[in-house]
Simulated assay, not measured.
Amino acid sequence: MQMLTRLQEARSLDPVSDRLQAAVTGTVKPQRLRDVLQGIWLGHPLHPALVQVPVSAFLSAAVLDLIPGRGRARAATTLIAVGIGTAAPAIAAGLLDWSQMTRDRRRVGLVHAAANTVALGLYAASLAARLGGRDTRGKSLGFAGLSAAGLGAYLGGHLSYAQGAGTNQAVPEIARIPEDWTSVGSLSSLPEGKTTVRTVGDVPVLLYRTGSHVTALIERCGHETGPLGEGEIVGAGPDACVVCPWHGSTFRLADGTVVHGPAASDQPVVPVRVHDGRVELRQP
C-alpha cells in the first residue's frame, strides 16, 4: 500500500527514532540481558512470542464483553489486568529488537509502538473504569484499545512479512548455492585460523580453516546482512567466533551457532569437503 511506502520513507520520523534508539541501547547494556530479550536461547526473536499473552487476554476480554452477564464482566476485567501486567516484557523485547533495525524499518516500528502505546493507555483507562463500577465506559474503552492494538498488529505484520524484520536474512542465500559440489579454491590457498570470503555461484561464503578442516557460513549476517568477512575473530579452536561489524552479532565458526545477538537465530552453514586438495561447497 502507498500509505506504508510513504511511512517507510518518512524521514521526518528519524529525529524521534534516533533519540529513542539511543535511549534503548544506552539503557539495556548487560549482554546477558540483551541475549535473553532477543531470544537467542529460543532460536528466534522473543518479542512475537511474548505479545501472544497480552493480545490473547485483550481479545478474550472483548469476546466476554459482548456476552451479557455479571460474571463475564468480572472475568473480562481480570483478563484486561492480565494483559496490562504482561505487556512490559513484550515491550522491552520489542524495543530492543527495534533499536537494531534499519531506518526504514524503525520508521514503521515507531508507529507500531505508538499504536500499541495508545492501546495500552486505553486498556488502563478501561480497567480503571471497570474497577470504579462504570462497566459501559470500560467496555467502550476496551473496544477502542482493541482497535488501536489491531493497527499495531497490522504494522507489526508488515514489518515481519513485507520488510523482513526479525527474519534470518541469510537463509534465502542457501537456495542460490549450486546443488553439486563446486570448487572455490585449493586448501593451501586458505589462511590458517583466519576467515576468507569466496563466491560460490554468486553467493559470498565465509570460509574458516583449521589444519585440514574447513567450515563455511553464508557470509552476509542473518540479522541485517552485515559483511561477516570484515568481522573480528574472537576465541580460538572449536570456540572461535566471528563478530558482525555492523551490530555485533557473534557466531561460532564451527557450526554457525549464534553466541550473542542481536541476531536471534544461527547463521546458515554450507556443507564443505576437501577433495584432491580442493575445497568444494554445495547446497545442503
Rank of each mutant, 00 (worst) to 15 (best):
E232S: 08
A61T: 02
T210H: 03
L146G: 02
S249P: 13
T250D: 07
E9Y: 02
R220C: 09
V111H: 07
L190W: 02
C221E: 12
A148C: 04
F251Q: 04
K139M: 09
A23R: 07
T27W: 07
R220P: 15
E232F: 00
A75V: 11
L120H: 08
N116P: 15
V234N: 05
R107T: 15
H213K: 14
F58Q: 13
V242P: 11
H112I: 02
D135P: 08
L4W: 09
Q52M: 10
R103T: 15
V53C: 06
S188D: 15
G277Q: 06
D180G: 04
P30Q: 07
L206A: 01
V203G: 09
N116V: 10
R282Q: 11
A128G: 12
W181A: 00
L187E: 08
S12L: 05
L46E: 06
A49Q: 10
G193T: 00
V16L: 14
V234P: 09
P191T: 00
Q2G: 14
Y161T: 06
A254R: 13
A165L: 05
G277F: 02
L96A: 06
P89S: 07
R32T: 12
T257I: 03
K139S: 11
T196V: 07
A144R: 01
T25A: 00
T86P: 15
V272R: 05
K139A: 11
I40S: 08
L151P: 02
W41H: 14
T77F: 08
N116C: 11
P227D: 08
G235N: 05
E230P: 00
V242D: 11
G211K: 07
V205A: 02
A165N: 04
V269T: 10
P172R: 05
S140E: 11
L207K: 05
G229L: 00
R176S: 13
R34D: 13
T199S: 09
I174Y: 05
V108D: 13
G94C: 05
A162N: 05
A73K: 02
Y208H: 15
G261N: 07
T117F: 13
R220S: 15
L96D: 10
G145T: 07
G164N: 12
Q283S: 06
I67L: 14
A236Y: 04
G156Q: 09
V53K: 01
P68K: 01
T225C: 12
H158G: 03
R34A: 13
N168V: 10
Q169S: 13
Q100G: 10
P15W: 12
V28F: 15
S140D: 12
A149W: 00
E192W: 04
A81N: 10
P227Q: 01
R74P: 06
R176V: 01
Y161Q: 04
T86L: 10
A162I: 00
G142M: 00
P268Q: 03
H275K: 03
A148M: 03
S17A: 14
A22M: 04
A129N: 09
A81I: 12
L217N: 12
L95E: 14
G261E: 02
